[in-house]
Computed example of a mutant assay.
Amino acid sequence: MDPDSIRTAERVPHGGETDRDLLDFSANTNPRTPEGVADVYANALEESRRYPDDDYPDYRAAAAAFVGCEPARVIPTPGGLAAIRLAMEVTLKPGDEALLPYPSFGEYAREIELQGATPRFVRYDELCEIGPTVLEASALAVICTPNNPTGDAIDSDALAAFAARCADAGTTLFVDEAFLGFTDRSSAAELERENVIVARSLTKLFGLPGLRAGFAVASGEQRDALATARRTWSLGTPAARVGAHCLRRDEFVRDTRERVASERERMREALERRFDVHESDAPYLLCDVGDRDVSTVIDDARADGVAIRDATTFRGLDSHIRVAVKDRAANDRLLAALGVDNREADDREID
């Protein structure tokens, strides 16, 4: 990390509501958690009287099976954000240039700048088309799939072709799959390319954002660099034990994917009666409120007990909100708070 850059950097806005009296649709986390989590956590808390095994063999084995790679390629991290920082620390130096998507997760630009590197913004849906001239001038390219906040997931063949072009240009490709677990798409970890680093977050899919568990996947020298740079005991014992437990709950993951897909479509149909809604593969929907004032839409929903994400904080968006996809009862409260009549969608489902 570049000391001079730290002094000029700023923090970026995120979803997540601190008022516990509000129903939080600003953060895209599963409202449910797998069975057995409380017991696993309680047992792990007692075991926290000793340092964890820094090799994390059980956690790495569970993570590897989840994304389809060898356990040796897994680098445990305390959340997806830690994987992002770790990857950028080992790939960027002051003066480098990095390609990143917009609109997309604001932490990418912040982490790039903290390394003293320069972000070069490219439309998220055009980044995979970048050619060799631009790639050769870039130390790093960032892909978010599904993209946050739009929700688009990148076609696997297109991503593989882009990874190959990055390799030819000597560019590291960083793929953030924080929300890919909500889909049945395969992980870029399966590409097993030495120029590709994948980041995963457990806490969104398994409804435990405060636990802070994630991992990176890499190969060859990149894997060795990440393993060396990773902080010792990077995961607390509760996070490692609960994380491994959650990663093996296949039925929970299947049920979550089915519920999110069904509720997302129902919500999209309802929300389109008032807003322009972006197609999504993720557990959230991006809505263009048009000529309505975004702050007013957010404040009105908040007055009805629902917090939603101001998406105008994302580069390139000036009339948007983002809403998470929760369970049916919560989603109905959101629709009501946004002044959306969803009775027609409900009637069609009953028919």
Rank of each mutant, 00 (worst) to 15 (best):
M1Q: 08
V12E: 14
G15H: 04
G16S: 13
E17D: 11
D24W: 01
F25T: 06
A27F: 00
A27R: 04
T29S: 06
T29P: 06
T33K: 15
T33H: 15
T33D: 14
P34V: 08
D39N: 11
Y41L: 12
E46W: 03
E46Q: 12
R50T: 11
P57T: 14
A65P: 00
A72K: 13
R73T: 09
R73F: 03
A87D: 09
T91N: 02
L92D: 04
L92W: 02
K93D: 08
G95R: 03
A98V: 10
P103M: 05
A109R: 05
E111T: 06
E113I: 04
L114N: 01
G116Q: 08
G116M: 05
A117E: 07
E126K: 09
E129D: 14
P132E: 15
E136R: 14
I143V: 15
C144Q: 07
P149H: 03
T150E: 09
D152T: 13
D152S: 10
A158L: 12
A158Y: 03
A161M: 09
A161W: 01
G170Q: 11
T171L: 10
G181S: 05
G181T: 04
R185V: 04
V198R: 03
V198T: 08
A199W: 00
R200M: 07
K204M: 12
K204W: 05
G207T: 03
L208S: 05
A218L: 08
A218I: 05
A218T: 09
E221Y: 02
A225D: 10
A227I: 13
A227N: 13
A227K: 13
T232G: 15
V242G: 15
R248G: 12
T256I: 06
R257Y: 05
R264P: 02
R268M: 11
E269M: 13
L271I: 03
L271R: 02
R274Y: 00
R274E: 00
P283H: 04
C287E: 02
G290F: 06
V294W: 00
T296L: 06
D299C: 10
A301F: 01
G305L: 13
R309E: 01
F314M: 14
G316Q: 10
V323M: 11
V325M: 12
K326D: 12
K326G: 10
L335I: 07
V340P: 06
E349P: 09
